[in-house]
């Protein structure tokens, strides 16, 4: 069905092109066969609106035809698909990653659930005990008071009760996912910085 229409269209198109060529190079010969001036005077060609309408219709129907045909081409045999690495394979610290994702999604949904803060708090306490040699109670108090790092984001995240500035709270509202991820990243980086500093001091 499609093939017949296609062949018909092709034949008409070829005939029209041949006609055009004939008119350009031998207008006299064609003129004796076809009423050229009558065709030129017909509304579809002489009136601007008619010309626009006629040519526009042909053009748009061609475009639609191409759009239709291009969709149902057979893609043929495919290459083996690119497979993403199996995500369910356990990786080191995978459970914490899951907690971070859950917290990020909760923040995006406007909920106030945080499954990471307590874990990071105990991590910071452990690191502080190791670095400063203080006891756990002191370390815990310092973390809760936000007095363990120079990073205001990390300090505010682990502190007891929000000590965040209005600007930061607004940012958290506007960009919930990014802000949550950033807090976690900055906090881990602050703990790593504690250990790095200690290592540098000992190296000296």
């Amino acid at each position: 069905m499609t093939d017949r229409r296609r062949r018909l269209g092709g034949a008409v198109g070829a005939a029209a092109v041949v006609l055009a060529a004939g008119l350009f190079f031998a207008p006299g010969a064609i003129g004796s066969v076809l009423p050229v001036s009558a065709i030129a005077r017909s509304t579809a060609l002489s009136a601007a609106a008619g010309r626009v309408l006629a040519l526009g219709c042909v053009g748009v129907s061609c475009l639609l035809w191409i759009a239709r045909v291009s969709g149902d081409e057979d893609p043929g045999p495919t290459l083996p698909p690119l497979s993403a690495p199996t995500a369910d394979e356990p990786v080191v610290g995978g459970d914490l990653d899951g907690d971070v994702e859950a917290t990020v999604e909760a923040a995006a949904a406007g909920a106030d659930r945080d499954e990471v803060r307590s874990e990071l708090r105990s991590l910071a306490v452990d690191a502080l005990v190791h670095v400063d040699g203080c006891d756990r109670t002191t370390a815990r108090r310092r973390v809760e008071a936000g007095e363990w790092t120079d990073d205001p984001v990390a300090a505010a995240y682990l502190a007891d009760g929000s000590t965040e500035s209005l600007r930061r709270r607004l940012a958290a509202r506007l960009r919930p996912r990014r802000t949550t991820r950033r807090r976690v990243d900055r906090t881990i980086a602050a703990v790593e910085a504690l250990l790095d500093e200690r290592e540098r001091e000992r190296g000296r």
Binding site: V91, V92, G93, G94, D95, L96, D97, G98, V100, V116, E119, L120, L123, D126, A127, H130, V184, D185, I188, V191, E192, L195
Partner: peptide, 23 residues
């Protein structure tokens, strides 16, 4: 050492391992 990388879980595991190592 398989800890580290960019994931928060890997980094936290890295810090914990470092603390054990130091101890």
């Amino acid at each position: 050492d398989v800890t580290g990388g960019d994931r928060p879980g890997g980094r936290v595991a890295g810090v914990e391992r470092r603390l054990r190592l130091e101890r």
